[in-house]
Simulated scan of single mutants.
Amino acid sequence: MENSLVQPWASDKKWEQFISEVIQLCEVSRKFIEYLDNVNKRMRIIHNSSVPIRNGIDHIKVLDIDKTLTTNENYNEIIKLMHEKEEFEPTCIDDLILCNVIQPVFLENMELPFSVTLY
């Protein structure tokens, strides 16, 4: 873009503001490209590292859900899945969480006929 600014038409007074803004755009674009290059370099280092970026203990969230006497039908699929699993068998329920709900609220308000621990 900057190369076009040396064209004869660019010396006309009416193009001064446009030229100034093009130069600013080019500078911002260079800075953004530099930022993206740095992010890519850091991500390559992280992905190539044998040391995890997070350890499995300090960054884990645990939510204990107590058994309830009543259940909400929104949790029927989870209840069915859990009945099919062995006790203490880790199970991913991500696909069973309704897409039209706020996940933390859905999980915190779970009503199940058994106690569970969510990680």
Rank of each mutant, 00 (worst) to 15 (best):
N76M: 04
K85I: 05
T117I: 14
I57S: 09
L36I: 14
S49E: 04
V28I: 09
V105I: 15
V39T: 03
R54C: 08
K41F: 08
D64Y: 02
D94K: 11
T71A: 09
E34Q: 05
T71L: 02
S4E: 15
N55Q: 10
E87L: 13
H59Y: 15
E2I: 14
I102L: 10
M1H: 14
C92T: 12
P113L: 08
E27F: 00
Q103K: 14
H83D: 12
L118Q: 04
M1A: 14
Q7F: 13
E2D: 09
E34A: 07
D64C: 02
S20A: 13
I78A: 01
H47N: 12
I23M: 05
P52L: 04
I65H: 03
E73I: 00
M43L: 12
E84I: 06
R30K: 15
Y75L: 00
D12P: 02
S11G: 02
N3A: 10
K67C: 12
S50R: 15
I97E: 04
I45Y: 01
G56A: 00
V22Q: 12
N40E: 14
S115Q: 10
N40I: 07
Y119L: 15
V105D: 02
E87F: 11
E34I: 00
N100K: 01
L98D: 08
I93D: 06
P8K: 05
I79D: 04
C26G: 01
E77G: 06
Y119T: 15
Q7V: 01
C26V: 05
P8N: 07
I102F: 12
K41C: 04
R30F: 06
K61G: 00
W15V: 00
D58V: 03
N48S: 10
L69S: 14
Q103I: 13
N48H: 06
K14I: 11
E34F: 02
V39M: 05
F106S: 03
Y75H: 02
W15T: 04
E21N: 15
I93C: 07
V28C: 05
C92W: 11
N38T: 03
I60E: 07
S29T: 11
M110R: 04
L63A: 01
I93S: 03
K80Q: 14
